Amino acid sequence: MKLPNTAHTSPPWRIHEITPDFRLYDVWALPTPGGPGDFPRLVRQTASGDTADNPSRAARALFAIRWKLGELLGWDTRDSGVGSRVPTLRDRLPADLRDGPSGPEFDRLPFSSVYLTDDEWASEMANRTVHAVMHLAWVPDDTGGHRGQMAVLVKPNGLFGKVYMAAIAPFRHLVVYPPLMRRIAQTWQAGSPAA
Rank of each mutant, 00 (worst) to 15 (best):
A7E: 15
A7I: 11
T9N: 02
P11C: 11
W13K: 01
H16A: 15
P20K: 05
D21E: 14
F22G: 03
V27Y: 01
V27H: 01
A29H: 15
P31S: 15
P33W: 15
P36I: 09
G37H: 14
F39A: 13
A47D: 02
S48K: 09
T51K: 06
A52I: 07
N54L: 15
P55K: 12
S56D: 10
R60C: 10
R60G: 10
R66M: 13
E71C: 09
T77A: 11
D79P: 00
P87K: 05
D91I: 01
D91M: 01
L93C: 11
D96E: 01
D96H: 02
P104E: 06
D107M: 10
R108T: 05
V114D: 04
Y115V: 03
A122E: 01
A122K: 00
S123E: 06
M125A: 07
A126Q: 03
M134Y: 12
L136T: 05
W138N: 00
V139W: 14
V139S: 15
V139N: 14
V139H: 14
T143W: 00
Q149D: 08
V152Y: 05
V154M: 01
P156R: 13
N157T: 15
F160E: 11
M165P: 05
A166S: 13
A167N: 12
A169M: 08
M181I: 00
R183E: 07
Q186G: 14
T187E: 13
W188Q: 14
Q189K: 11
G191Y: 04
A195M: 12
